[in-house]
């Protein structure tokens, strides 16, 4: 019976200690347990943060695609149109191909370097009066190759590719 009472009193004390963090005013003994609990939780939080950080690092490592002995090929299709005032079909083909190659270079530059985008909307009397989106691309592209050329109905399509490898980069 004595042991039962002792056990009940211990249980009530533990329950009080568990409820103690909710109360601002608490006994010093209980406060220490609370601090320990919070310390444990912060330790747990820091551990979880570390795991999050490591997982972020791992995911960042997954994004690095250029690895030794592994090449990445980027392929694009550029389009160009022949001008209307050409003297011969051959000239039309040559000029459309030039335009398509420039478009292919633009697409490669967009993929490798990114695009600068600027947008502007003019709203007057609760209505969109003018909507403008400006984009700009600038890059120096080396070692791009024309793989295939198709010319049909004045439209020239040029398939271009660029091979990126870790070994070709300056270390």
């Amino acid at each position: 019976m004595k042991y039962l009472l002792l056990f009940a009193s211990l249980l009530s004390l533990e329950l009080f200690a568990a409820d103690a963090p909710k109360n601002d005013a608490c006994a010093p003994q209980n406060c220490t347990t609370t601090q320990q609990n919070t310390a444990k939780t912060t330790a747990k939080d820091s551990a979880s943060m570390q795991t999050i950080e490591t997982s972020v690092d791992e995911s960042q490592n997954e994004h690095i695609v250029l690895k030794p002995n592994r090449a990445v090929i980027i392929s694009v299709v550029g389009q160009g149109v022949a001008p209307t005032n050409t003297t011969s079909p051959a000239q039309a083909y040559a000029l459309a191909k030039r335009a398509a190659i420039a478009d292919g270079y633009r697409l490669i530059a967009e993929k490798l370097r990114g695009v600068e985008v600027e947008g502007q909307d003019l709203i007057k009397n609760m209505m969109v009066e003018r909507s403008t989106v400006r984009t700009a691309v600038y890059a120096l592209v080396k070692q791009a190759n024309v793989v295939e050329t198709n010319f049909r109905d004045g439209l020239c399509e040029v398939e271009m590719e660029i091979r990126l490898s870790y070994d070709s980069l300056p270390h």
Binding site: S131, A136, V137, V141
Partner: peptide, 11 residues
């Protein structure tokens, strides 16, 4: 190597 400089506007 070619330098490509492209600007486009959508209005």
């Amino acid at each position: 190597g070619f330098a490509i400089h492209e600007r486009s506007t959508t209005q």
